[in-house]
């Protein structure tokens, strides 16, 4: 691993970005790594566009530079496109196959975004995390956990840094009992989906 491995978690305030970032951070700690997870609270969280900066490495500074993200995990497609320039050339972008338009806005279609994304020097993966969460948990509330599992599955470097076992353990910091069990199951299904997608590329 080079000095710092940077993961940008992007999406809409309320989609569980802070939880995703914190679980990834906790898993890094359990893997014996130093990490910093930069969040944003307050006004920006109210349905606004949010970026969480996860930087894994020795005593890293808190903000990912443009072109400095090795992996972007996007909980929503418009936000994936908005923050795509944070990705370095050859980096990974995994996006939840879901559009949540801002009210009263004119926005590009799913096909338009995906088309433009595929034209970039980027490993681009699309995954319907809302759907999987719905099927396993009964609502979209755990789409963030599904995205985290999938992102680990597709990104060989990330999963060599952070072991899936440690992510599973980190879930315990947020969930207990039955809720933990079902989220663990979701994490693994999504992880295996990710592994399959990665093989195809």
């Amino acid at each position: 691993m080079k000095n710092v491995y940077s993961v940008a978690v992007v999406g809409v305030g309320g989609q569980g970005l802070l939880t995703l970032g914190s679980i990834l951070g906790y898993a890094c700690m359990l893997s014996g790594l130093d990490v910093s997870v930069g969040e944003v609270h307050g006004m920006s969280q109210r349905g606004g566009s949010v970026i969480v900066h996860v930087r894994i490495g020795r005593n890293p500074s808190p903000i990912i530079p443009v072109g400095g993200a090795d992996h972007i995990i996007a909980m929503e497609l418009l936000e994936a496109a908005r923050y795509a320039h944070y990705a370095r050339k050859g980096g990974v972008l995994t996006a939840n196959d879901f559009i949540w338009p801002p009210p009263l806005s004119n926005y590009p279609s799913r096909e338009e975004i995906i088309g433009k994304m595929k034209g970039k020097e980027l490993l681009f993966y699309l995954f319907n995390a809302n759907d999987l969460s719905n099927r396993i948990v009964g609502s979209t509330v755990s789409a963030n956990i599904a995205m985290l599992g999938f992102a680990l599955g597709v990104d060989q470097e990330l999963r060599s840094i952070v072991n899936i076992k440690h992510v599973e353990e980190a879930l315990l910091e947020h969930f207990k009992g039955k809720v933990y069990e079902v989220n663990k199951e979701l994490l693994h299904i999504a992880y295996n989906e990710g592994l399959k997608h990665a093989e195809k590329k």
Partner: peptide, 11 residues
């Protein structure tokens, strides 16, 4: 993109 990505202020 066309149209461009719309801004998403807090709401």
């Amino acid at each position: 993109t066309d149209p461009p990505i719309p801004p998403r202020p807090p709401i």
